Simulated assay, not measured.
Amino acid sequence: MTKEAIIERLKEYRSDPTAFHEKWGGSDKNVDYHIIWEGGFYPSKTIINAAHYVVMGDPNMEEIRGYSGGLATMVPVLERHGFDYTEGKVNWDREEMILALELYARDPQPGKGSKAVAEVSGLLRKRAEQLGRVVPPRFRNSDGVYLKMMNFRRYDPSQQAKGNKGMERGAKLEQAVWTEWSGKLVSLREAAKAIRLSIENDIEVGEAFSDDMDSDLAAEGGFEYRKHRRYERNPQNVRRKKASVKNAGLTLACEACKFDFEQTYGPRGADYIEVHHKKPIHTVKPGSVPKMSDLALLCSNCHRMAHRWGKLMSVEEIAALCK
């Protein structure tokens, strides 16, 4: 595989997606992983497959058949050739489900094209951006919000009496959220209102950041701190940084004090380390993908000290403090 071959297929797709799929197969439906290239999102599996056929000398797909793969094969190829990519399927969290359930409580059958469904979709996409995620076209779109609402039907006696059973499969968290909130509609509306306000005004709410490191952060730079932590918690940034370190043959040890979780805790500590963003959040362009050199691996203790008192310290300064 070559980077040039991938770029050629990206250009081919961009010029005419329909013709591209007619030639190479695949589709734009149910795509979890996208290649991010020149500000656009492209279906990773189809692009990589097509590039593979060309590189292997079979541009008409006459001899090589059955090349397939997903996370285990696509992502390493993308990383090896320096492409950024979306983080794939992201499970719904509790706050997202509360918004979906509150919408369901207002109208159990709103229709995919309703303004209410579109409004919740927009809120969830905005929230993902606030958390530092790169948001692909399908992420929490109206269809996804509608399907999540329909999942609640299987717990709703009034819908079951009508023969509307909902989706047979769903996340375990759906039942927990239904059990906790379906009998408390006033509280549900208040919780959804608080979540909406937090997204619209980019402020903290609920459990999303329940492990804030120090109470004094609220008084000294707390808002900037929370934005910084959202950026650091982006699963894509964490995964990419860990992968870059391991690909270089290094261990996931703290860059300040050299603490190694696996060495200390055995298998339970394997692959665990926190990722710290070195730059102040106000210097980071919204939606940008950080360079690996902008991220550092820190143990929990050093990470707390780097953020304490609302004043960001460098990894070198923290290392100098270690005794």
Score class of each variant (00 low, 15 high):
Lys227Thr: 05
Lys246Gln: 14
Glu224Gln: 12
Gln236Thr: 07
Asp211Leu: 14
Ala243Cys: 01
Lys227Ser: 04
Ala208Gly: 05
Asn234Tyr: 01
Ala218Asp: 15
Glu204Trp: 10
Ala219Arg: 14
Arg229Gln: 08
Glu220Gly: 10
Glu232Lys: 00
Gln236Asn: 13
Pro235His: 09
Ser215Val: 06
Ser215Asn: 14
Glu207Asn: 15
Lys246Trp: 07
Arg240Gln: 10
Tyr231Val: 02
Val205Thr: 09
Asp216Pro: 00
Glu204Phe: 08
Ala218Leu: 14
Ala248Phe: 04
Ser210Gln: 13
Tyr225Leu: 01
Glu224Leu: 11
Gly206Thr: 00
Ala243Asp: 01
Glu220Cys: 09
Gly206Phe: 00
Ser215Trp: 09
Asp216Gly: 08
Glu224Gly: 04
Leu217Gln: 06
Asn247Glu: 08
Lys241His: 13
Asp216Gln: 08
Tyr231Glu: 03
Asn247Gln: 08
Ser215Gly: 09
Glu204Arg: 13
Tyr231Asp: 01
Gly221Lys: 04
Ala208His: 07
His228Lys: 05
Gly222Lys: 01
Arg240Pro: 00
Ala219Asn: 10
Asn247Phe: 05
Lys246Gly: 06
Val205Gln: 14
Tyr231Ile: 04
Asp212Cys: 13
Pro235Met: 07
Ala218Ser: 10
Ala219Ser: 15
Ile203Thr: 15
Leu217Ser: 05
Arg229Asp: 06
Asp212Lys: 13
Val245His: 05
Lys227Val: 12
Lys246Phe: 02
Leu217Trp: 04
Gly222Thr: 02
Asn247Trp: 02
Arg239Phe: 06
Ala219Lys: 15
Lys241Gln: 09
Glu204Lys: 09
Asp216Asn: 13
Met213Cys: 10
Asn234Val: 02
Asp211His: 11
Val245Asp: 02
Arg240Trp: 03
Val245Pro: 02
Arg226Phe: 09
Asp214Gly: 07
His228Trp: 00
Glu232Val: 00
Glu224Ala: 14
Ser210Thr: 11
Glu207Thr: 15
Lys227Phe: 10
Arg233Asn: 10
Phe209Leu: 14
Arg240Ile: 03
Asp216Met: 11
Gln236Arg: 13
Pro235Tyr: 08
Asn247Met: 08
Lys227Gln: 12
Ser210Cys: 13
Tyr225Phe: 09
Tyr225Thr: 00
Asp212Gln: 13
Val245Met: 03
Ala243Pro: 00
Pro235Ala: 09
Leu217Asp: 07
Asp211Ala: 13
Arg239Tyr: 07
Lys241Pro: 00
Asp214Glu: 15
Glu204Asp: 14
Arg233Met: 11
Phe209Gly: 03
Glu220Ser: 14
Gly222Arg: 03
Ser244Lys: 09
Asp216Glu: 13
Pro235Gln: 04
Gly222Cys: 03
Asn234Pro: 00
Ala248Gln: 06
Tyr231Asn: 03
Lys241Ala: 04
Val205Ile: 12
Phe223Ile: 11
His228Thr: 02
Gln236Val: 03
Asp211Lys: 15
Tyr231Gln: 03
Val238Asp: 01
